[in-house]
Design a protein around this nucleic acid. Structure first.
Lengths: 195, 195
DNA sequence: TGTCCTGGTTGCCAAATGGCAAGAAATGGC
DNA sequence: GCCATTTCTTGCCATTTGGCAACCAGGACA
């Protein structure tokens, strides 16, 4: 649990969280280990709240043509959840999958709500987590609007190098909004330029 | 203020908010009227929190080539704010502009924070507003990934018809991630098909 | 009424990306 | 180490989108 405690401390910059409060918070979490290709969340189920201490995950869904679309990659030291499902308490439309072995700490929707209203420290923390994810999505949308596929690929590598080690090309491709064929070509150019 | 009160009631579905609580909340807001082309927020300033009772707004920013990019359209009956600036208390990178005459109610960042920690009712409400915007962004990102420009245009019209009455084509185009030239062509095909 | 200005459209061609099918490379099971 | 399977790359051509410049239409205004 120490990692979770450190993580919460690091992400409540505006307030000093007492040791007691931290312990009260982490008390609602339980350790969870996922093997490669295990699901943290399946479509139709409700999302819980997961601090990913170690490993690498991805979220995906299916569009109406039945194509799988990778919506997100989660490196370690992030909280992992599907916002609409968690907060609105509705079934998720997304799957979240461990793409390496993963270790972390899990809390239920009810725990999150309880903590959210009971503890100002957790309010700040969870709001911070939500804002972080929201801002990431905003940036991503902006990239989709005004950057080429190649620029988006560069950007992904710059911000999240591990993705290359862990994710398949077709997943990276659909995350970037292109086909795996196009990604392959982009990578070829990329290598050429690098030489 | 009655519209704001109704709006808050309508968006706290899980709890009954007392009249007293509602009054305490709206007490932190003040009426604000914006003329066409007035700014609600400018880049470099900090975002406040605005309930748009009537009118139509858009958010935009500049990419590093200096091109203006429309990031969002706000129809009436929405809260309008730049999430990163508001919550992290940093200068905004976005502008938010009234594209028709607008009327609404404004609260400062400090008021929002105060209410957020002091009143469970407002916590629920503001979390709901944040989730709604977040989910809208997620859907938009998904559209950018797996829909063609034409499909995105149809979708925009379906969900937000007023945008056509109020916004310029070039703003709609950059919102959709295409050039105004392409949008014009798409509209032509669109009309052909409609006949 | 004529002129300027802005916003929207069009034609022409270039660049980016997709679709499909085949081939090459990597991976996993035995 | 070998085969089967999956993942990644490539070639060929179609489609989508962009860039630019010209053009058109409507409103503002002298």
């Amino acid at each position: 649990m120490q990692k979770l405690i450190e993580f919460i401390k690091a992400n409540t910059p505006n307030i000093m969280v007492s040791q007691k409060a931290l312990e009260k918070i982490v008390d609602h979490f339980e350790e969870r280990i996922l093997g490669k290709n295990d699901y943290l969340l399946k479509a139709g189920r409700n999302s819980s709240y997961f601090y990913l201490a170690d490993g690498f995950m991805r979220a995906f869904t299916y569009d109406f043509h039945g194509n799988e679309v990778t919506t997100y990659f989660y490196p370690k030291d992030r909280v992992v959840f599907e916002i609409a499902s968690l907060i609105l308490d509705i079934p998720s439309t997304e799957y979240i999958e461990a793409i390496t072995e993963c270790k972390g700490y899990l809390a239920s929707c009810e725990s999150i709500n309880k903590l959210f209203h009971a503890m100002p420290e957790f309010r700040e923390f969870s709001r911070m987590m939500m804002v972080r994810e929201f801002v990431a999505y905003k940036e991503r949308t902006l990239s989709m609007i005004n950057k080429s596929a190649e620029e988006r690929y560069r950007e992904l590598l710059r911000n999240n190098m591990e993705v290359l080690q862990h994710a398949q090309m077709k997943h990276i491709a659909s995350y970037l909004g292109i086909t795996d064929t196009s990604l392959s070509r982009i990578r070829r150019n990329f290598l050429k330029k690098a030489c």
